[in-house]
Design a protein around this nucleic acid. Sequence first.
DNA 1: TTATCCATGTAAGAAGTTACATGATTGA
DNA 2: TCAATCATGTAACTTCTTACATGGATAA
Lengths: 194, 194
Amino acid sequence: MIPGFGRGSAKTMDVKTLCLGALTTGDASGYEIKKKLEGSFRRFYEASFGSIYPALGRLQDAGLVTCVEMTQAGKPDKKVYALTGSGRAYLIDELSQPLGSDRIRSEFMVAMVYSHLLPPEHVANLIEERLQIYDESLTELQDCDPDQLPPGRRFVLGYGLAIYQAGREYLAAHRHLVETERETEAPAAVEAAD
Amino acid sequence: MIPGFGRGSAKTMDVKTLCLGALTTGDASGYEIKKKLEGSFRRFYEASFGSIYPALGRLQDAGLVTCVEMTQAGKPDKKVYALTGSGRAYLIDELSQPLGSDRIRSEFMVAMVYSHLLPPEHVANLIEERLQIYDESLTELQDCDPDQLPPGRRFVLGYGLAIYQAGREYLAAHRHLVETERETEAPAAVEAAD
DNA sequence: TTATCCATGTAAGAAGTTACATGATTGA
DNA sequence: TCAATCATGTAACTTCTTACATGGATAA
């Protein structure tokens, strides 16, 4: 058996899973899969070319996808991948495994925890930036027509909207908590590690 | 210069930053830092012993923390670390760098996107599980007394509550979207939008 | 003419997890 | 007696990102 493809193994999802999933809605090249993954979905799982291309190669080795090379007029050749029966089965099997818990990594929240160490005007800037990011994300999500999406995607889209809306509202309503005075004690000892 | 400690470098936050931050509220051993990081804060950034211990070693090499070995009665020895002036300056410098965007990795959401491939009763189970996780998280967060926390932590605590509440409500209100019928057959190529 | 899109891939490295090794003490 | 808590650390491994290499076509 090809390593990393044990049936029913307790491995977590990775870029391979994402690629298989992307191929359920139609054959695609690595480049196109990246595009698909950049849809509304991207907020919950990302992948770069550097992980997608090797993943596709390994999926092909394992017989979970097939590949056809296509020549195009005025564009580079591309390799179009298609899900096989066992690929589909593998995806379903993986989705049926116990799911890992959500992981959030927010540098913004870390900065907020230590906001008292920063100049208040800098904190205010961070908040403004973040509000803008929320607004952009919300606009982007609102521009999607849910009725055109299959239920799963509609569900995830709505979830994203709900979360961002709640986050934005909280931020606007409670920013004062982190925009107050900076810690006075100034330990200016800059004996830099350079 | 010790590698990985360039001043003003565009590096993202890592476990070193977290350790420095944890030490702003008092000296601590690696073990105790892990504990601190497991507070309300953990939802936005995690770290394991396997990353904390090496991080502390490197911070010490760079002069950002100092270390005192302590013997204890009935317990193993421990190494208590303390922030130095340059450690504090380094932390502030790092928090002042442009912040990386939030990263979420949710296997649950991936499963929801492809829920039509799974048996409806399995999807229902996943939803139930997830609601329970939300409830547990909410209970845990509600048990914290915000008045005892410094503003930064209070802010982050409230943010967590707002997000989980919104997530829970959305889930309860829209679960029907993903609990409907399973896809019966491999559908004839309906190229769905992403 | 400059940038962006198309398109694939590799190599180096960052960053972290898990499992292991060790071992006394304490509480159920 | 069994598990958990306290406590540090290493090694192997996984996973992914970034940067690089390549290069034609097209749009501003």
